[in-house]
């Protein structure tokens, strides 16, 4: 047995910030796995997802929720989904393999991103300063998801409804991304 232990660190050490009625919080208890569809394997994967998660795979740009592991399937690209789910003891891809078998190509993305939630009445006004996507609820309703560019950072944004958004940005630039978010909120308060 090794004499050494490896401790886990999240990108922003689980930061939580509140500005008036806008709150920013790092989410640290969710895993992300990319699922790529093997050529010609859409149906097989789709069936596996329905049987394991009781949900249909979403269209690109949409999110489908499952009560199993509190999983969210994000339609990222024509042949790719992200599944975001509650972290458990086992390795993330093992967990997905245990559910979906070999119906997709799985890649762990849990450590590739910093995951932030921004919420509160002025959160959309704050995001207006950095997000080129129209976040108006008629255009980007709850469970819409997409990747875009915010202040030079490629960022995935998911509408959780009611002025709440989940943001995923590259882990290595998590500090810069946090500053971007903070500045946006400060500038509109």
């Amino acid at each position: 047995m090794s004499d050494f232990m490896l401790k886990v660190r999240s990108p922003l050490d689980g930061i939580e910030l509140t500005y008036g009625d806008v709150a920013i919080r790092e989410i640290t208890d969710r895993d992300i796995v990319s699922i790529a569809i093997p050529l010609g394997g859409t149906e097989t994967l789709s069936k596996a997802v329905i049987s394991a998660y009781q949900t249909e795979l979403p269209a690109v740009g949409r999110c489908a929720k499952s009560h199993v592991d509190n999983a969210h399937f994000l339609g990222m690209a024509p042949d790719q989904y992200f599944i975001v789910f509650d972290r458990s003891g086992s390795e993330s891809t093992d967990k997905i393999t245990s559910k979906l078998g070999k119906t997709g190509y799985f890649t762990d993305q849990s450590d590739s991103w910093v995951m932030m939630r921004i919420g509160g009445p002025k959160s959309r006004t704050a995001l207006e300063r950095i997000c080129p996507i129209d976040l108006h609820p008629t255009v980007f309703p709850e469970e819409s998801v997409t990747r875009t560019l915010m202040e030079h950072l490629s960022t995935i944004i998911l509408s959780e409804g009611n002025d709440h958004y989940l943001l995923l940005s590259a882990r290595s630039s998590a500090g810069s991304f946090l500053q971007v978010l903070q500045k946006s909120v400060e500038n509109v308060l």
Partner: peptide
Amino acid sequence: PGMDVHVISATEQF
């Protein structure tokens, strides 16, 4: 486009 191959960046993952 007929190849069964997928790429995804794992730079930040490890």
